[in-house]
Amino acid sequence: MLLKRLQPMMFQARRNYVELMFQVMGRALQAISDVDEPTREEVRALPEGFLFEMQVMPNGPKLIVEHTGDGKLHFHGDTAPRPVDLSIQFKHMAHAFLVLSFQEKTSVAFANDRMLVDGDVSYAVRMTRVLNRLESFILPKLVAQRAVKEYPADIHLPEKLMSSARIYLKVATQFVETVRA
């Protein structure tokens, strides 16, 4: 009985969390691509003006970033200026939550059929590596090790730069604690 009444709240909280994490990730992607050479190196292989989207099916939250040239990413929020080139879609909010609360690695989620790729797979492979790198940046090392296949050895960025992302993350973790049970 109680569970039935609580469930809509939980669904809402989960949705809020996923929306918030997309915001955090979008901003962090933009920030990292400004300063981190390995990230830029990956992104340079994408065409200029390339639009990347992460979305929860069927009409859930979205994250859209654009490659504006020379490896730099620009965060567009949840609206794309034109049709996207590559879309990674979670089949359900529950799966997005698993990945974005770092309970399931991005690569494992792919392997577990939680997500679909619409677009060129080689670009998806690149974006997955960029996302892995992002997770290693914004997460405390201990959590990051759970979220990515291997923790990169060459992570050194000015601490200040990432601290704002970490603040978002703190808010985010509180959601996890509320919703996880």
Partner: peptide
């Protein structure tokens, strides 16, 4: 490194 199958390799 651009091949889709690399995503499922157990090591990065």
């Amino acid at each position: 490194l651009d091949d889709g199958s690399i995503m499922f390799n157990p090591r990065e």
